[in-house]
Amino acid sequence: MGTDIPLKELGQAVMQPASLVLLPHVDPDGDTLASCVALALALEKAGKKVRVLTENGIPRIYELLEKTGTLLHLNQTPGALDQQDACAVAVDAGSLERLGRRKILLLGAECSLNIDHHRTNTRFAQRNHVDIRASSTGEIICNLIHMLMIPLDPDIATALYIAISTDTGGFRFGNTTPETHRIAADLLKTGLTMEISELSRLLFERTTPAKTLLMGHTAGNIRFYGGGRIALSVITQQEMEEIGASDEDCEGLVNIGRNIQGVEVSVFMRQRPDDTVKVNLRSNEYIDVSAVSTRFAGGGHSRAAGFTWTGDTDKLIPLLVEQLEKELEKELEKGLGTEQ
C-alpha cells in the first residue's frame, strides 16, 4: 500500500515528469475514459507528453472522445507495453487488477499515481489521491486542472462533463452533490463541443437493436429473493450470441431490476465466453453493495458495485443471495428496510 496524498501534492506530482501514461480501468465507462482524456489534454497544454492507453478499445457511445486524438488501444498499438514513461497514472481504477495487462506499466514506472473516488480503492500506487466525497473521478480531475491553473477549452470541458454526468446517471444518483452541479455549470459556461441536448441523447438515450432485445430478456429473466427486495437476472452467453449483442449492450441493464417497486438490491449477471461472469450490483437506499462485492474480490460504491466470478452462475447465485439477505436482515434489525 502506497502513500495517500492531497490534491496539491497530486498536482505537483503530475507536473514533474516530462512524459506520462494514463491508464483507464478495464471494461471502461465514461468516467474513466473521459477523465483520462481531460487530464491528457490539460497536461499537453502544460507541455507534457501524454498517452492514454486502454486495454481493449472503448464502447461506441464514447467514440466522440476518439476525436481528441489522445486514446491508444493496447491491441492496436504494437510495443505499447514496452514503452517507458516517466510516470504511470491509474485513473478511476479501484485496484491493480482493474488495469489488466497494463499493470506492468504502473509496477515498472519510476513514478506511479492512483487517482480515484471509490471507497474500496486498495491504494496500489506509490502515491494515491482517493477522494470518496467526489461524485466521480472526473470531478477530481476538474479540481486538479483548476488548481494547476490550466485553462479549460471545449474539448476538456466536454470530456469532464461526460465523466461527471455518466457517473452520476445524468445527475440522478445519490453521489450527486451541490458541488457536482456547480462544476457542471462551470463546464457549460466554458462551452461544450456540441449542444447539451445532443450530448445527453448520445450518452443516455441512444440504444442499439441488440440492447433493446437484451432489455426484454433481462426483464423476463428476473427472479426475486429476500421477500421481493432482491431482483436478480442472468444473461447467458447463448442469449448474447443469438441476439448478436456485445458487452457494451449490457451497460445499464442492472437498473431494470432496481427500478421495480419494493426492490432494494438489483443484481445483473452476464456470462462471458471465458467461463467468467461479470456481476453488477445496485441498491436504492440502505444496502452497501460495495461491502458485499468485496467479499467476492470486487469493489465499488455503496450504491453501485461489481465483481467478476470464475465459474458457473448456479454456484454463485445462492452464495450471493445469502450475503445480500444477511445484509437485508441487518438493516431490518436497525429499523431500515421497512415498507414505506
Rank of each mutant, 00 (worst) to 15 (best):
Leu188Ser: 01
Ile183Phe: 00
Ile162Phe: 04
Pro154Phe: 07
Gly174Leu: 13
His181Val: 15
Gly174Asn: 13
Ala159Met: 06
Phe171Ala: 02
Arg182Val: 00
Ala159Cys: 14
Asn143Val: 00
Ile156Thr: 05
Ile162Gln: 03
Met149Leu: 07
Gly138Trp: 04
Asp155Tyr: 06
Thr176Arg: 12
Met147Lys: 03
Ala185Val: 05
Thr193Lys: 14
Leu192Ile: 04
Leu187His: 05
Ala184Glu: 08
Gly138Ser: 08
Gly191Trp: 00
Thr190Met: 06
Ala159Gln: 12
Pro154Asp: 09
Leu160Val: 11
Ile183Met: 03
Gly170Thr: 04
Leu160Glu: 13
Tyr161Asp: 08
Gly191Pro: 06
Pro151Val: 06
Asn143Trp: 04
Gly138Ala: 03
Asn143Glu: 15
Met147Val: 00
Thr168Val: 10
Leu192Tyr: 03
Thr180Met: 01
Arg172Lys: 15
Leu188Ile: 15
Gly138Glu: 10
Thr193Trp: 01
Leu192Cys: 06
Leu192Pro: 10
Gly174Glu: 14
Asp167Arg: 13
Gly170Pro: 09
Arg182Met: 02
Ile162Arg: 02
Asp167Cys: 11
Met147Gly: 00
Pro154Lys: 08
His146Gln: 15
Phe173Leu: 14
Leu187Ile: 08
Pro154His: 05
Leu187Ala: 02
Leu188Asp: 04
Leu187Phe: 00
Gly138Cys: 05
Leu188Tyr: 02
Ser135Ala: 15
Ile140Glu: 07
Pro178His: 05
Thr193Pro: 04
Ile150Tyr: 08
Ile141Pro: 09
Ile140Gly: 07
Leu152His: 12
Asn175Tyr: 04
Asp155Arg: 11
Gly170His: 02
Met149Gln: 14
Met147Glu: 13
Pro178Gly: 10
Asp167Trp: 08
Ser135Gln: 08
Asp167Leu: 12
Ser135Met: 06
Asp155Ile: 00
Asp167Pro: 14
Thr180Val: 05
Arg172His: 12
Ile156Asp: 02
Thr166Ser: 07
Leu160Gly: 11
Ser136His: 00
His146Gly: 09
Thr158Leu: 07
Ile164His: 10
Asp167Ser: 12
Ile183Ser: 03
Leu187Gly: 05
Gly191Ser: 01
Ile156Arg: 02
Thr190Cys: 14
Gly170Lys: 08
His181Cys: 15
Leu187Gln: 06
Ile145Glu: 12
Ile140Arg: 07
Pro151Asn: 13
Cys142Ile: 00
Arg182Ile: 00
Ala184Phe: 05
Leu187Asp: 03
Ile140Ser: 10
Phe173Ile: 08
Gly169Arg: 08
Thr177Glu: 02
Ser165Lys: 09
Pro178Leu: 05
Leu188Pro: 06
Ala157Ser: 11
Asp153Phe: 02
Ser136Tyr: 00
Pro154Gly: 10
Ile156Pro: 05
Thr180Arg: 02
Asp153Glu: 14
Leu152Ala: 09
Asn143Gly: 15
Met147Ser: 12
His181Gln: 11
His181Met: 15
Gly174Arg: 15
Asn143Lys: 15
Glu179Gly: 06
Leu148Arg: 12
Thr166Gly: 12
Gly138Arg: 07
Ala159Gly: 11
Ile156Tyr: 01
Leu188Cys: 11
Ala185His: 06
Gly169Asn: 08
Glu139Val: 05
Leu152Val: 07
His146Glu: 15
Ile150Glu: 10
Phe171Gln: 06
His146Ala: 14
Ile141Leu: 02
Ile156Lys: 03
Arg172Glu: 09
Leu187Ser: 09
Arg172Gly: 01
Leu152Gly: 07
Leu144Gly: 12
Thr137Lys: 00
Tyr161Ile: 09
